[in-house]
Amino acid sequence: MSHDHEHDHTEPPSDLELRVKALETLLLEKGLVRSDTLDAIIETYEHRVGPRNGAHVVALAWSNDEFRRALLADATAVVSELGYVGRQGEHLQVVENTAEQHNLVVCTLCSCYPWTVLGLPPVWYKSAPYRARAVSEPRSVLAEFGTHLPESTQIRVWDSTAELRYLVLPERPRGTDDWSVEQLQKLVTRNAMIGVERARMPEDLLERDP
């Protein structure tokens, strides 16, 4: 899929681009926003806050059972102690996957998502198909991510309708008993923490380390 920049210099700006530019210009002129603040906000969410935070939390939970129990009991407190605090992470709950029960997170009404640990949500999470189908046909949704659960595994879907934000604690992959927190983090994908995929297996890292 092609992204911006590639065609910006040859095509005139779209009506949408002009509409946004006009609004920004007006807000700057009226003193309602500052351009250095806009840049700082973009920098924060494009480069600083992201799923590495969540992967750290998950790897710690896999490594330390006391941490894991505390995290499941009061994720807001435990995650804030790691410094992952702020907007769209004010009230956190961690839900744990097991062989018997798989958790999946959605926001059917808008796009609620734990920004402090996962960053901004991907396009598909905010899209109408995911919001519509995650609650009613989660098995089919998981299959579209290549995730095929045994029929015996119960699927529990969390619809984030309030200001609680949910993070899935994936199952720890086999064969990682002697791995460090730093190594384990590499197995924790964003999609696994939403619940649409499992954590990566050690062999996945060898095959396609991004």
Partner: peptide
């Protein structure tokens, strides 16, 4: 396909 759906209400 969902066993349970939890919703904050």
């Amino acid at each position: 396909e969902a066993s349970e759906v939890l919703i904050d209400l």
